[in-house]
Design a protein around this nucleic acid. Structure first.
Length: 560
RNA sequence: GCCCCAGUAGCUCAGGUGGAUAGAGCGGCUGCCUUCUAAGCAGCGGGCCACAGGUUCGAAUCCUGUCUGGGGCGCCA
């Protein structure tokens, strides 16, 4: 259980007790937000503003209530987290963690090891995080980097929070876009064989397709020029698609983004799931025919307007398969919850997906769509918006090559998804040493250095006496480490992983401060026990810091 | 025109389900390496939290309006 929740429970008990014995009149307690982290350390480790809120209903002054509550809560001593409890004007109940208990947490963290930071907020519920899902018609470019990093860090954190997480990439391998891609590939393929073959109007013009065409020409010769069109499309198209997916996978891999499932849109059509969903909608009157097309009546379910699902030509729109896809997520796939990470250019589709949920008779709250605002890329004076429509494409792989995967991840993660962000390439490259990412990683490298030298000296700290950890810097470090589970728990609610990099910086600061104040390794025999205790603490810090870095998908370097 | 997101220090951004004196990094200025990595530490300076109202014991935080910036409003995806 989180320390915060333990303290909230103690406060609730105290309030109930005081109300039973008449010390305090009856008043309602808020369901959440009972206990918070005060901004100032002098206000304790935790604080509750309950008395201020309850004063009116209780018809007592906030300070009277605060005193009554504080008096009703007995400290835990060294065995539990609750140390000093006191009332503070204008009406707070402040809690200070027990120093004895705090010291013991150094060992507890070390024993938790890689599981430190885990919480059980998810209780094993199944959640799918679908992200990136770029059309497989070209390489991943920078515009997708933010969503990629956001989704992967969120998935990692939700797993730590006790959810069973599936990371999924939706491969749009059906539809008009794919057809255009295939015709573009075929043109490049034919051109590579010296044939006059114009690229389709609005075809894909990237150099990568010229290369792919040449590659296919080399491998297959002119075989597909003569072949039956359908056969050529099926075989050459599939090969081209798989090559693109390889490129995409490699790009994403370079920034540490991986998926459990690569879901093929085509499969929805192949085995009848698409038709089933359409039948479901039609039976319930959610569709109508107008102007030769079939429409989904989303306006009746909260959207601004209706949307076409089957064109006049008879071809389904992307939206139609998306409906079938989402029905599949909750139905056949059985996810309790689905999180889609989309770019700002898709925000208009949120209301219609919510309408889809209602039409499918699913609770709309089970689907969360996170919208990441667009990134402005700055390269010195040049500003280039990282949107799909921009002519200047910078690939994700190129960005990683220039800036490095860790720095990229940290930069993208440090900003709240709903904030637009500026990514200065020049700065990221030039001042990489000043980047906070190195500040955090440097703390880990320092820890690794100490532990390495300790091991060389044959030091063992399993039997360390944590009671020797009495310095302010030591206790501050333990306090900061203990916040990690709270951060994980909170991200499970807010779905905002940008708390991670901010926490990581604070944790690194706490360690650097400890490093400066407290010498760990000492050759003086008189310090033997203290050295052991500090090695235990340093080891715990290694665990907390590497976990924080791991949740962000960043490396924890042994040396820098 | 309608809808979504944002506006906090010179710059980039946290804080936002209301709480105590609004924070960090970068940049600027001062100090600190005989001992575990100075990619570090300590300190100084820097704010009408866009603006105007409202709710409240209390507003950067919630509500309304205005302004500014970004995005969206296709039988594209």
């Amino acid at each position: 259980m989180l320390v915060r929740d333990h303290i909230a429970d103690r406060l609730r008990e105290a309030a109930a007790q005081a109300q039973r014995d008449g010390t305090l009149p009856p008043f309602d307690l808020p369901a959440s937000g009972l206990v918070e982290r005060p901004q100032k350390a002098e206000h304790g480790d935790f604080a509750s503003g309950l008395p201020l809120r309850a004063a009116k209903a209780a018809r007592r002054s906030p300070m009277e209530i605060a005193s009554a509550l504080a008096n009703a809560i007995a400290p835990d001593g060294d065995g539990g987290p609750v140390g000093e409890v006191y009332a503070a004007p204008p009406g707070f109940v402040n809690f200070r963690l027990s120093a004895g208990w705090l010291r013991g947490q150094a060992r507890a963290i070390r024993e938790a090891g890689a599981a430190f930071g885990d919480v059980d907020a998810g209780a094993g519920r199944r959640v799918q995080v679908e992200f990136v899902s770029v059309n497989p018609t070209g390489p991943v470019h920078v515009g997708h980097a933010r969503g990629a990093v956001l989704g992967s860090a969120l998935a990692r954190t939700l797993a730590a929070a006790g959810f069973e997480v599936t990371r999924e990439y939706y491969v749009n391998d059906a539809g008009a876009q794919m057809d255009l891609f295939y015709r573009s590939v075929f043109a490049r393929y034919a051109q590579a064989l010296g044939k006059e073959a114009p690229l389709p109007e609005d075809g894909y013009r990237g150099a990568y397709l010229t290369e792919l065409g040449a590659e296919l020409a080399e491998r297959h010769g002119s075989r597909y020029l003569e072949a039956d069109e359908a056969k050529a499309k099926a075989e050459l198209g599939e090969e081209a698609l798989n090559r693109m997916l390889d490129v995409i996978r490699a790009d994403l891999d370079s920034i540490g983004v991986e998926f459990d499932v690569w879901f093929r849109e085509r499969d929805l059509y192949a085995d009848g799931r698409y038709e089933e969903t359409m039948a479901f909608l039609r039976e319930r009157g959610h569709t109508s025919r107008r102007d030769g097309a079939e429409w989904f009546a989303s306006s009746a379910l909260g959207d601004e307007k209706d949307n076409v699902i089957v064109r006049g030509t008879g071809a389904p729109t992307y939206f139609a398969s998306d409906i079938a896809y989402h029905r599949d997520k909750f139905g056949r796939r059985g996810f309790d919850r689905v999180i889609n990470v989309w770019g700002a250019d898709h925000q208009g589709h949120v209301p219609r997906m919510k309408a889809v949920m209602r039409a499918l008779e699913l609770d709309p709250d089970r689907l969360t769509i996170l919208i990441a605002q667009l990134v402005t890329l700055k390269d010195g004076e040049d500003i280039v918006r990282a949107s799909k429509r921009t002519g200047r494409i910078i690939t994700l792989g190129g960005l990683v090559d220039e800036v490095g995967a860790d720095a990229c991840r940290f930069f993208f993660l440090a900003r709240a998804a709903e904030s637009q962000m500026e990514f200065d390439l020049e700065l990221a490259k030039k001042q990489s040493a000043d980047n906070p990412v190195y500040y955090v990683q440097y703390a880990h490298a320092r820890i690794a250095g100490i532990l390495r030298q300790a091991a060389e000296r044959g030091a063992v700290w399993d039997d360390a006496d944590a009671a020797l950890l009495t310095d302010d810097a030591e206790l501050a470090l333990i306090r900061k480490m203990l916040q990690l589970p709270e951060v994980v728990d909170s991200i499970a609610v807010t779905l905002a992983p940008h708390a991670l990099p901010h926490y990581a910086v604070e944790l690194a600061t706490a360690f650097h401060w400890f490093y400066d104040h407290c010498r760990v390794l000492s050759s003086d025999p008189a310090d033997a026990e203290l050295t052991k205790a500090r090695l235990l603490l340093t080891d715990a810090a290694r665990i907390a810091l590497s976990r924080a870095l791991g949740l962000m998908g960043m490396s924890a370097p042994e040396a820098m």
